[in-house]
Design a protein around this nucleic acid. Structure first.
Length: 908
DNA sequence: GCGATCAGCT
DNA sequence: CACAGCTGATCGC
């Protein structure tokens, strides 16, 4: 893994789902609720041990297993054997019991009772279907009163199923183990319980831990009941580390997994991977004992939690810089390295006020404070799950803290010059931060203060003692106006609707309304410094309405040196943003846009209609821009161009006053026609925000027209052979219209759609579609269904509902269908069964690899910013190299309009 | 109870 | 696994 460049840091916002998931998990590790969870968990584990069958499995693996709900309690039925046949997605239970009962249950499951024991009793197998996809490494049969464990082989998803049976089980209990509704531990969503054991390791640490754990295991001491999930921050993989064990040192309380793991951290000699200050580290959990010593010098990128038995509180130590990018709140915890921030005595006035007001529900607020124990310092930890603050009494008389407003250490990141200062080992906080390779760690003081303030305010109300105390301390008045240090002061930005009102003249009054705002506005000078731009006022405003802290808007959604963002609706009110551009109406682009949204939205006519109709956004915020006509919006000239994606999808050219021109493709499918767009022709583009969905040589699928022709041919041929045939075509909410329109045209048929799809299509200005679409399924031979309804089951059901059609030809148009081997000439169905045939067609509404290449070589932008697949540095690097190569090629062989032989062959 | 968000699945 | 969207669980109000 190479050293990250500055560029990488810009990307290192962790926007991907994975990154978020990991950060969320991480956050729970450092959350104070962990402490409670552990206690709850150990109780649960005890209960679980009493169970006769202990089935550990990921919830999703078993969610489709149906419980034996038809077996009444007290009806005699025992499980005598358990058989895992997970290859076939089956879990089999061999049972014996009341014949009637079993017959009932087995009939329900379409299985039969085989053997007969007596008149009243019988036994047999009941097969419960699961949706398990993983292979089982070995499957052992259980016999009565014996225990076995069956594990799935380690797969990429680290699934594990262990099933043990000690005693006969009453069938009436089965549902406890299989029903997702009755067993909260097996709900789909991972509860905090399941993430307690997640740590963040580099590969080197992982090796170290594994070695240590195995060596501890060999001593035969306490074995942890839960698998330990280890996530490498570098590679984002996870694995299960089973049989983690540690010393139990005769204490009545079992050591927590966290404690176990900490013991593995002793003397970790870590690799200094980012040139961060991380020399040899000594981490000794034993030194973090009853006298509340703060661990010296935590390694960077290491997240641990230590349970402090004496104070019954968790301490969280997290210096993982890579994982602190997720949110403002999280960084407070991460950056300090010594566990949150240290406030000076009674900094929040908490000693007297919180004592009885704490330890609410598990996910609420846990504070542990005791005036008598506290000899002067309050140790606060703001957990990264944004929803809990831990305050422990900290009796470290020699700790000195710097001011909470110390900007040198990032505002709240105060120094923790503890008593080890003398030997020079401490001052880790102050030293680490300025030299940190991660500029994001340098949050503004204002930012953090507001986060914490908002938290207390949300929890206790603005008039509460805690909030008042905090607001006094931070100099934040209760009206939420920003009064922090002037260097961070950002004037309030008033959101205004309809900066542009849709006139088709190029210069509009919008520019003057913008001019009035401009003087008040501050926007990013550098796209990378997005974090710093979050102001007190806006952060708080953001958090007031919603205790969930919004994700940060990644830089590539912001047009630099403007107040414009593109497809950035899931970040709340973005500080400094006055114009929210929406390129098209797909959920991954409008995500977060709800009817409560009250900021100016700019989009195409069709998209605007959809936003109003389908999302209920107030029309006053929707600015429908004309296509092809330059419009002045927020001091920038915007030109909307057809993106060849879905109806209403646009590419946008931003022409800044400084002369720079940025092109945002939105989602698009590049085509040679675009080379004729006047605003792209002979224009030097500075930044190209590019839809890189298929920026990989393996995606060289045919052109849309070829696929449409293929679909039409298929349909015509099929109907010729089967006169009473139904053609079903998959569709997105909006998208794939061309293909089913073409088929309907060829068959001279109406297009039958769902009510929802009709509403969507009504938003488009498409005369042909309007004339063909109908809600009456019997009126046409072409039925349009959501893509998700192209499963066998759903198609059979749909067919059954429309028996007038003898057979069904279903077409699933998606780019992902393309396998590299398929050619349209000899295309074959994915499956054909019971008169229903499904074809997958490589119909894409994103550019293929070669189309991207041609587009780039035509446009020759100065800079390319991928907007898709940009989460992983490796992939970014590959794309970067690809772009560079394309640019070199086109430079070497210019004439710019020349088309290489390879490109000419791109569609063959 | 409702809307927003998220995880999981396709 | 990418996309786009559905479903169901959870969270916050």
């Amino acid at each position: 893994m190479g050293k990250e460049t500055d560029e990488d840091e810009i990307w290192n916002y962790k926007s991907s789902t994975k990154g978020r998931a990991q950060a969320n998990k991480q956050s729970n590790v450092s959350g104070s609720s962990t402490h409670m969870n552990m206690r709850r968990k150990s109780r649960k584990q005890d209960e679980a041990q009493k169970n006769i069958i202990n089935l550990q499995a990921d919830a999703e693996q078993l969610k489709t297993v149906q419980p034996a709900d038809s077996i009444q309690k007290n009806e005699v039925a025992e499980v005598i054997d358990v058989d895992l046949e997970i290859e076939n997605d089956l879990v089999a239970l061999k049972v014996s019991g009341n014949r009637k009962t079993l017959n009932k249950e087995m009939n329900r499951c379409n299985n039969s009772v085989q053997s007969k024991n007596s008149d009243n009793f019988s036994s047999g197998s009941i097969i419960y279907k699961t949706n398990l996809k993983s292979k089982v490494s070995k499957s052992k049969k259980l016999s009565n009163n014996k225990t076995i464990t069956t594990k799935l082989s380690p797969s990429k998803s680290s699934r594990k199923v262990s099933l043990s049976c000690k005693k006969p089980l009453e069938c009436s209990n089965i549902d406890k183990y299989f029903s997702p509704t009755k067993d909260k531990g097996k709900t789909k969503r991972k509860s905090s319980e399941s993430v307690d054991n997640i740590f963040d390791f580099t590969d080197d640490e992982l090796m170290f831990v594994q070695e240590n754990v195995s060596s501890i295991s060999e001593t035969g001491e306490k074995v942890s009941e839960k698998p330990l999930k280890i996530i490498s921050s570098q590679n984002h993989y996870s694995t299960n580390l089973l049989d983690c064990s540690v010393k139990s040192d005769n204490s009545t309380e079992k050591p927590t997994v966290q404690e176990n793991m900490l013991s593995c951290f002793k003397n970790i000699d870590r690799v200094d991977r980012d040139n961060a200050i991380s020399p040899k580290k000594d981490v000794d959990v034993n030194s973090c004992g009853h006298d509340n010593e703060i661990i010296e010098e935590m390694p960077d990128n290491l997240a641990v939690s230590v349970k402090d038995d004496q104070n019954l509180a968790m301490r969280n130590y997290d210096s993982s810089l890579d994982n602190c990018l997720e949110s403002v709140s999280y960084q407070v915890c991460c950056d300090t390295s010594a566990g949150g921030f240290l406030a000076d005595e009674d900094a929040f006035g908490l000693h007297s006020s919180i004592e009885d007001d704490i330890c609410r529900d598990n996910n609420e607020l846990h504070m542990s404070s005791s005036s008598s124990d506290c000899t002067g310092f309050t140790h606060c930890i703001l957990s990264s799950d944004h929803d809990s603050i831990l305050v422990t009494a900290d009796s470290l008389p020699s700790i000195k803290t710097s001011s909470l407003l110390d900007n040198n250490s990032g505002g709240l990141l105060t120094t923790a010059n503890n008593k080890h200062d003398d030997n020079g080992k401490s001052s880790c906080v102050q030293n680490n931060i300025p030299t940190s390779p991660n500029k994001h760690s340098l949050l503004t003081a204002a930012n953090k203060q507001t986060s914490i303030f908002s938290f207390f305010k949300a929890k206790f109300g603005s008039g509460s003692k805690v909030s008042q105390s905090l607001s006094n301390k931070f100099n934040i008045n209760s009206n939420s106006s920003c009064t922090s240090t002037s260097s961070h002061e950002v004037p309030k930005v008033t959101a205004r609707p309809n900066l542009y009102r849709g006139q088709t003249t190029s210069a509009t009054a919008a520019s003057s309304s913008y001019a009035a705002l401009k003087s008040q506005k501050q926007w990013l000078q550098k796209s990378s410094s997005t974090v710093d731009n979050q102001t007190d006022v806006e952060t708080e405003k953001l958090q007031q309405g919603n205790a969930r802290v919004k994700k940060q808007c990644p830089f590539y959604k912001k047009i630099p040196n403007t107040s414009i963002t593109v497809d950035a609706f899931s970040y709340g009110v973005i500080p400094g943003c006055e114009v929210y551009v929406l390129t098209h109406f797909h959920c991954d682009h409008y995500g977060g846009l709800t009817k409560r949204f009250a900021q100016p939205i700019f989009c195409s006519q069709a998209t605007g209609n959809l936003v109003e109709q389908r999302l209920g956004v107030n029309n006053k915020w929707i600015n429908r821009l004309p296509m092809w006509k330059p419009c002045q919006v927020a001091g920038v000239t915007l030109t909307l161009m057809e993106a060849n994606h879905c109806p209403g999808a646009v590419m946008i050219l931003f022409e800044l006053k400084d002369g720079r021109k940025h092109l945002h493709t939105g989602d698009f499918r590049a085509c040679p026609d675009m080379e004729e767009y006047p605003m792209l022709k002979e224009v030097t583009t500075s930044d190209l925000y590019l839809d890189t969905t298929y920026c990989n040589p393996s995606y060289t699928f045919p052109t849309q027209s070829e696929v449409i022709n293929c679909a039409v041919s298929l349909a015509l041929a099929y109907v010729a052979e089967n006169p009473h045939a139904l053609i079903v075509c998959g569709t997105y909410t909006i998208g794939k219209e061309k293909i089913f329109t073409a088929i309907a045209r060829a068959l001279n048929s109406k297009i039958c759609v769902t009510r929802d799809k009709k509403k969507v299509l009504d938003c488009l200005d498409d005369k042909e579609l309007q004339s063909k679409v109908t809600l009456d399924w019997s009126k046409g031979q072409v039925h349009v269904l959501p893509m998700g309804k192209l499963t066998q089951k759903a198609l059979f059901e749909h067919h059954a509902c429309h028996p007038q059609f003898k057979t069904v030809l279903a077409i699933e148009p998606t780019g992902w269908t393309y396998s590299g081997k398929t050619s349209l000439e000899n295309i074959s169905p994915k499956w054909s069964k019971n008169g229903v045939t499904l074809y997958g067609l490589p119909y894409s509404e994103h550019s293929s690899y070669l189309e991207l290449k041609r587009f780039i070589q035509f446009l020759r932008p100065k800079k390319i910013i991928p907007t898709v697949n940009n989460g992983k540095p490796e992939i970014r690097k590959t794309m970067e190299d690809t772009f560079a190569q394309w640019m070199r090629e086109s430079r070497d062989s210019r004439k710019p309009s020349s088309v290489s032989a390879q490109q000419r062959n791109m569609h063959t």
